[in-house]
Simulated assay, not measured.
Amino acid sequence: MKFDRTLLFISLWLFSQVTLGHAMGSSFLHLTETSPSIFSQRWVPAKQIERLSLVVEPQYPQHCFKQGPVVDCGDDGLLGDIHFENLPLHADVVVRIEWLNGGKYTQAISGQTQSIQLTAADIGVNSRWQVLTTYMVIGIEHILLGLDHLLFVAGLVLLVGFQRQLIWTITAFTLAHSLTLALSVTQVVTVSQTPVEIIIALSILLVAAESLDKRITLARRYPWLVAFVFGLVHGLGFAGALREVGLPEHELPLSLLTFNLGVEFGQLGVILGLYLITSLIKRLYESGKLLRPVTLASAYVIGILGAYWSISRSAELINVF
């Protein structure tokens, strides 16, 4: 058990370095055709891009003329290249276009490609497959690049270990965040995002502290209950990120379902990856002299991150900084 926990957090540290260096978030471009070849633009850059003071704006085909939020493409229509100059490598943009004829187009652009090419075949398309693939990828990216959610999932593994009870614990977490995600994006439940982020940070601090406590605490006896309660809050956090990207009203159930499935696939992929790394290193190294110091140090690192986020997000709430 100690060996599993140690290797879990060695693996987690490696994951954290990647996510800290690559998480940029998704931007959102929504174009609605209000009259023939004239579109209303809604452009929402990712918060991380704004914080870095990067200038990322959609660039339209040369025959299109933009004035404020209005894009006029004349007789040639919205055909050609939509480009996002200066889009960071590890960022993406969700593009949604709605034409007067009822056609709807949904596509994600990565920082590697930075553009999409619209053809006449795309006009009038109402592809559910586009919605499915786009929002599933966004869900996978959100869990893999969302370090706080990732740390909480890993903390549950730390608390429970790779045993049967982990199945019920992760299932409880999944059910809880799926419930509040659906209630939030459909506006049945509306809450401020900052308090949600504070509680998420506190949940990370809690699982780190509980992993160091050898007593039979409530969290050790009923980890599924801890996972469910905090899963409700994490679902509100997922919903906040999803609202920034936007959901197509014409395919709301499908986009919500596929985003949530993407989160689950990413979550299970992380757990599977940690298990495989643990099994591999366990075969390679049989000596356990440094296991306890490494385990303690790893748990303290996770706890410190949770404490730091708790303080910084609380300061943001009360406008200290």
Rank of each mutant, 00 (worst) to 15 (best):
L151S: 03
G124R: 07
L232E: 02
F265H: 00
G237S: 06
V245D: 01
H83R: 11
S11T: 14
A241Y: 02
Q130N: 13
V93L: 14
R96I: 08
N86Y: 15
Y222K: 06
A201G: 07
L118M: 13
E316L: 12
G235A: 02
L145M: 06
L206H: 06
Q163N: 13
L296C: 11
G306C: 10
C73K: 08
W309V: 06
G266Y: 01
F15G: 08
F259D: 00
L175C: 12
Q62V: 13
V153L: 14
S127M: 04
T180N: 02
T169G: 13
K2G: 13
T217G: 14
L218R: 05
E98P: 07
Q114M: 12
L54C: 09
T171Y: 09
Q59T: 10
F173W: 06
L179C: 05
T194I: 15
F65A: 14
R51S: 06
S26I: 09
E244F: 09
T134K: 03
S26V: 10
G68Q: 10
L218D: 08
I116R: 04
A208M: 04
L52V: 07
I199H: 04
S53H: 12
Q59E: 11
F265I: 12
Q193L: 13
T134I: 07
V196I: 11
P88C: 10
L166F: 13
T113D: 15
T119C: 11
D81A: 11
G68R: 11
R164T: 15
T133W: 12
Q59I: 10
T106Y: 05
I116M: 10
Y60G: 11
A46V: 04
I97F: 10
S287C: 11
